[in-house]
Structures are given as C-alpha cells and as structure tokens.
Amino acid sequence: MTLNKLKDQISSRLEEQPGNFAIAFKDLSTGETLQLNEQDFFHAASTMKTPVMIEVYKQAAAGVFSLNDSFVLKNEFKSIVDSSVFSLNAKDDSDTTMYQHLGDKISLYNLVYDMIIRSSNLATNMVIELVNARNVTQTMRQLGAKKIQILRGVEDSKAFAKGFNNVTTANDLLVIYEKMAKGEIVDSASSQAMIKILLNQEFNEIIPAKLPKDVKVAHKTGNISHVLHDSGIVFLPNGKKYVLVILSKNLQNEDNAKKAMAEVSEMIYKYVSSPKES
C-alpha cells in the first residue's frame, strides 16, 4: 500500500458522508505525512482545550502559578464582548459533577485534568480566565501554529452571536501534537505530563475506536452541533508513534460520520503498522 493509495481510500470513504473533512497525519518515525484540506478553518470546539492546557504548563514553568495552586470553583464568567456576566448550564456540559463543587477549592491540576479527559466546560472557563485566551493564541504562534485562534471560553453567547469563535486547522493541531510528542513544548517533563493527561481521555469514539487495545492514544476530541473532531498522538506497542487529526463540519448524520472517521483512523493505523515494501 502506498501513501497515495491510502489517501485515495480515505477520500473515497469520506466522500460517502455529507459534510466537510480535514485530515493531517504524520508518522513520527519516518516523517511521512498525509494531508487533506489541512489548511481549512474549522470551529475548534473542544480541541482548543489542548492549547489552553499548553498555556497552563508554559505559565507554570515561568512561575506565574503552580499546578498545585487551588482556586474557588465558580460559575460566573465575563463575555469578551461587553464584560457582562454569564453562567454555564450544567445540562449542556459533558461533565456535570463539577457543578456539585461550586464554592469549593479545586487544584489547577484537577481543573486541567477535567477540562481534558471529560471536556468540562466549567473547568475550561476557569482555566481560560486564569491564563487569558490572548496568551494562548500567542503561544500557538510561537509554536508554529499560525491559524489557531483562541478568543474565549465556552458558552459566551454574545461572542458567538457576533461570530467571535475559536477556530483551528488540521495542520495547526498536527504542529502542536508533533512538538508535544517530541518533548518540545515547554520542556520534556511538561510535554510528558500533558501526554499523560491526554492518555486518560474518556471520549474514545473516533481515533481509538477501531484500534487494538494495546495501542494507546493521547488525544482530545471536540464536538458541537454538526461538528466532530479528534486529534492527538497514537503510540504503537513497538515504540512507533504518529500524530493524527481528523476534523469535520456541516455534518448531516453525526453517527455515520463518527463511524467513517473511526474507519479512517483504522486505515492509517493499518498503513503504519504494516511492513513496507522496500
């Protein structure tokens, strides 16, 4: 199987689905890449939580705060449009347990952990308020991700109405996960700590869904209406690793799209793990 043949297979599988897709894949052992619509903009949805986590580790390394610091959990945030206060609805959050702890002190590490593995919106807004969305975007530029734009936290409906959304491209997510896999984000220890969190991801319906159990995936998903994403680093038992980003938008049937995206992940895994003809 050649890389071009793999690309044709992937394209034809995705063409069966109404919607737009982007793929960015890089084998970190061979440097081989496969990209499809990798520079197209997508609503970042919860994939933006990885850049936010990166900013936390960067500021912690700079001594701004420690991951052991605790913060009082609250549900009041300011809109980036006019600083008016809004709150999140627990029913719209993939992690409802956090809302039972309002008023309690929670460590920054636990906020970051919940933001990633359960995609807690409440934790995300707490963390973004702490690190400042502008700093997140700036750090992305320094890492070579030129298009990711992190403007705000979650459920800021005034900002949404004005079209102020967090956006990304498949290529930009590939850039940051490759640096993380190589230990080049902040430092090796920080990169490892972030990978360790991402490995505990609880939403596993796309990239890991059809992979063997001994394959580990450090990843972050994202979904809002008609949008489904998954992005991260895939670790094979033999020590090989690769980065895979699959983004989608304008979906009509999310279940079918999810299945197709999981199959694309499986095709890439089979390509990487099969012996290459010399």
Rank of each mutant, 00 (worst) to 15 (best):
264 V>T: 14
58 K>E: 13
154 V>E: 04
43 H>R: 08
74 K>C: 13
210 K>T: 06
215 V>S: 10
167 V>H: 10
55 E>L: 11
229 H>A: 01
243 V>L: 00
44 A>H: 02
178 E>I: 07
64 V>M: 08
199 L>G: 01
169 T>H: 04
240 K>R: 11
25 F>K: 00
275 P>M: 11
241 K>A: 03
173 L>W: 07
55 E>R: 08
179 K>V: 04
254 E>M: 09
79 S>M: 14
267 M>H: 04
101 H>R: 10
148 I>E: 01
278 S>K: 08
3 L>D: 00
137 T>F: 07
137 T>E: 13
208 P>A: 15
130 L>Q: 10
182 K>M: 10
177 Y>Q: 05
161 A>W: 02
191 S>R: 05
100 Q>Y: 07
111 L>H: 03
59 Q>R: 10
206 I>K: 00
267 M>G: 02
244 L>G: 01
24 A>V: 00
97 T>N: 15
227 V>T: 09
128 I>A: 02
119 S>E: 08
170 A>N: 04
103 G>H: 05
120 S>V: 15
99 Y>E: 13
200 N>M: 08
17 Q>L: 08
38 E>I: 03
29 S>F: 12
158 K>H: 14
40 D>W: 04
89 N>V: 08
75 N>Y: 12
15 E>Y: 05
97 T>H: 14
132 N>P: 01
194 M>Q: 14
89 N>F: 11
48 M>A: 13
100 Q>A: 10
239 G>I: 07
252 Q>F: 10
102 L>C: 09
134 R>F: 11
36 L>A: 00
145 A>Q: 03
76 E>Y: 11
243 V>M: 02
83 S>F: 14
47 T>N: 04
100 Q>C: 03
274 S>R: 15
71 F>I: 12
23 I>F: 01
222 G>T: 10
193 A>R: 07
110 N>Q: 14
